[in-house]
Amino acid sequence: MTSPLPHAASAHAEASSHPLLSAAEAMFPRLSARSEEIENARRLPPDLAAELARDGYFRMMIPEALGGLELHPAVSFQVMESIAKADGSTGWCVMIGAATALTAAWMFEPAARAIFTRPDVITGGVAAPIGRAEHVEGGYRLSGRWPWASGAQHCHWLVGGAIVTEGGKPRMVREGVPEMRSFFFPAERAVLHDTWFAQGLCGTGSVDMEAKDVFVPDEYTFSLSGQAPRIARPLYGYAFGLLGMGISAVALGIARRAIDELMSLAGRKTLMLERRLLSARPAAQEAIADAEATVRSARAFMLEALNTIHAESTRGPVSVRTRAELRLAMTHATRSAARAVDRMYEAAGGTAVFRASPLQRCFRDVHTATQHAMVSPATLELTGGLLLGLELPTFTL
């Protein structure tokens, strides 16, 4: 792998000076103070969701041509990371809303404008092709029930992935492969089932959403894998990488919070039997050093991969190897973040198990993030095989 140091340095400077990142960092005291409220509500409070929308957090990946910010991915990554440091559930919802909105680049312009030019619009949903969409005159009849619809309660539009059918049978694009598309529809057409009783990321409202025979016009559908973006800008040359990069941003933000919390705790917690501060214990010192190195190296790999893929996309099509390296960086960062949080949780001792400790929330949140399919251990099999030169399916990259 080559290290694009000039690009990395440029993106770091851009992110450091971007007003949205500065605003995200400034939110930390106020947002972290609401974590218990967010967790107990099991969703983002309406006023917080509206504030995030008004300030542009859900517009980071929308094309400039549609009134969006179209930020460099390294900037969006660091914004999500900063929000997640304050509150993991809020970071996750920002990630879902921003990533869903990038699909505006694949839609017919009139439909994209109808959805995304509203300045406070929030979109969400589930891209997995769990539903069924019967092709009819002028559009499709969409039905299905999708789990993990994070932030659906505050969305104006939802998107559901589905297999296209005609006459009740799947429409095939080639032998053994059915056509899969995604479908935007107004949020009020969905039924939300309150199923989100989880160990972590409790405030994301990741409920089941259901559509029952909802008509979706042709122009409100798209396929990330079956068509090129209609807005041909570098940011949209690697869609699946953008959809998943926020998972690692959230995980790394949570890990940074855990490290900071332990460092603060170590300077004030006295070990009863040893009669010294936790900071004087060699095991705590080693844990801090290990976690710091783990998180910063994983983060550096993510930023390198994001800068590399974006630079390559400005020159032309992105190679399979570059896509694989981004997926590898995403998985590595997410799982490295979990290991770092584990070290901090263990080093804190019994203090960390109480609800008053942010460390217990960091522990639960990061281990919920690791369960996402985009960063599962199976992705290491795919990326490892591709790096070894094997011929493997690459449509998920």
Rank of each mutant, 00 (worst) to 15 (best):
2 T>S: 14
3 S>Y: 15
3 S>G: 01
9 A>Q: 15
11 A>M: 13
17 S>T: 07
28 F>D: 14
28 F>M: 11
33 A>F: 06
39 E>H: 13
41 A>P: 02
41 A>L: 15
42 R>Q: 15
43 R>Q: 13
44 L>P: 13
48 L>Q: 02
51 E>R: 15
55 D>H: 10
59 R>Q: 12
62 I>N: 00
63 P>T: 11
71 L>H: 02
73 P>D: 00
76 S>F: 11
77 F>H: 10
78 Q>N: 11
79 V>A: 05
92 W>R: 10
95 M>L: 10
100 T>R: 10
100 T>A: 14
106 W>M: 02
109 E>A: 15
110 P>R: 14
112 A>S: 14
112 A>R: 15
112 A>K: 11
115 I>H: 08
116 F>S: 10
117 T>A: 01
119 P>T: 04
120 D>I: 06
126 V>S: 14
128 A>L: 05
128 A>W: 03
136 V>Y: 02
137 E>D: 10
138 G>A: 07
142 L>Y: 01
143 S>P: 02
160 G>C: 14
161 G>H: 09
165 T>L: 02
170 P>E: 01
175 E>F: 10
183 F>S: 02
183 F>G: 02
189 R>D: 15
191 V>F: 05
192 L>N: 00
195 T>Q: 08
195 T>E: 06
197 F>W: 13
198 A>M: 12
202 C>T: 15
204 T>Q: 07
207 V>L: 14
212 K>L: 08
213 D>K: 11
216 V>M: 05
224 L>W: 13
231 I>K: 05
234 P>N: 04
242 L>D: 00
248 S>T: 00
249 A>W: 06
257 R>M: 15
257 R>F: 13
257 R>D: 13
260 D>S: 12
263 M>N: 04
263 M>S: 10
266 A>S: 15
266 A>N: 03
269 K>Q: 11
275 R>M: 10
288 I>N: 06
291 A>C: 08
291 A>G: 07
294 T>A: 13
294 T>W: 04
295 V>D: 00
301 F>G: 02
306 L>K: 04
309 I>M: 05
313 S>T: 05
322 T>R: 11
330 M>V: 06
333 A>C: 01
336 S>E: 12
338 A>T: 02
340 A>Q: 07
341 V>G: 05
344 M>E: 01
346 E>K: 09
349 G>N: 09
349 G>E: 05
349 G>T: 01
351 T>I: 12
351 T>W: 13
352 A>Q: 01
353 V>M: 11
354 F>N: 12
360 Q>S: 14
360 Q>D: 04
362 C>H: 02
366 V>N: 01
370 T>P: 02
376 S>Q: 12
376 S>P: 06
383 T>Q: 09
383 T>Y: 09
390 L>S: 12
391 E>Y: 07
396 T>N: 07
397 L>Y: 03
397 L>W: 04
